[in-house]
Structures are given as structure tokens and as C-alpha cells.
């Protein structure tokens, strides 16, 4: 299965999830997503998603100058972003449970998918 297509649908919630506890700059967020198992995620896809989340008012940004190099743009989740993340998590869990039950006929309970399930 082409996971890049699946990623498109869930990248918002994935990005929100990796900055839920700690703010991050662009490539840092990419790195966190890959470390979480989303190895096929593209840099530009993440940056574009961040831009879209910012435009939707779900994240805030700030620029941090760096010594001797280009400054970095940091992203942090805000309250609205957390609310959205909670809602999206419930939607995803519900969806994953149903889909798991559909495609795993022998057992609908032993394979609840996690965020690492998508690779």
C-alpha cells in the first residue's frame, strides 16, 4: 500500500501530536515524525502542513535567531490546536477500530492500531 497517500490524510494529526509536548522548528518536526515511524514523510509536506495549521489557527509560530546561521521558525500547538488534536484522535481511533475489525476478520480487538502502525 502506498503509505504516502495515507499520510496525506493523517499528517495534520501527526504533526500536532509531535509538537503537543514540545515546540519544534521545521526540520526538527520532520525528524520527530520519522523517529516515530513515519519514515516516508517528505520535508516539504511537513512544512506545508505546518503552514496550513498556522493559517487554520491551530499552531503559533515564533522565529529564533541563530548564531552565525539562518534563523529558525518554531511552531507550538495552541489551545485550539489541542482541542482539534483531541477530536481528531477520537475520530482516528474510531475509524482505525472499525477498519481493523473490517480487515482482520479473526479478531477485532487484538490489533488496535497505533500511530506507529503506518509506515
Amino acid at each position: 500500500m502506498d503509505t504516502t497517500q495515507l499520510l496525506k490524510g493523517v499528517l495534520d494529526i501527526a504533526v500536532l501530536a509531535v509538537i503537543r509536548d514540545e515546540d519544534g522548528y521545521g526540520y526538527d518536526i520532520v525528524r520527530r515524525l520519522r523517529a516515530a515511524g513515519l519514515e516516508d514523510v517528505g520535508d516539504a509536506s511537513v512544512y506545508g502542513t505546518l503552514r496550513r495549521l498556522y493559517a487554520a489557527g491551530l499552531v503559533s509560530t515564533y522565529v529564533v535567531p541563530s548564531e552565525g546561521g539562518p534563523h529558525r521558525k518554531y511552531y507550538g500547538i495552541n489551545d485550539q490546536g489541542r482541542t482539534t488534536l483531541d477530536a481528531d484522535r477520537q475520530t482516528w481511533n474510531h475509524f482505525a477500530q472499525r477498519l481493523g475489525a473490517l480487515i482482520n476478520p479473526e479478531s477485532a480487538t487484538d490489533s488496535a492500531p497505533t500511530s506507529g502502525g503506518i509506515k
Binding site: 522548528y25 521545521g26 526540520y27 520532520v30 525528524r31 520535508d43 512544512y47 506545508g48 503552514r51 498556522y54 522565529v63 541563530s66 546561521g69 539562518p70 534563523h71 529558525r72 521558525k73
Partner: peptide, 17 residues
Amino acid sequence: TELTEGLEADLAERLDD
């Protein structure tokens, strides 16, 4: 500007990586 602010930093880090 919104899309590419901090782009150089991200690219440089990716290049290192």
C-alpha cells in the same frame, strides 16, 4: 515568506543529515 521562513535552516540541517 510565510511558506519559506526558516527554509535555509531546515535545508541546511537536512543537508547535514
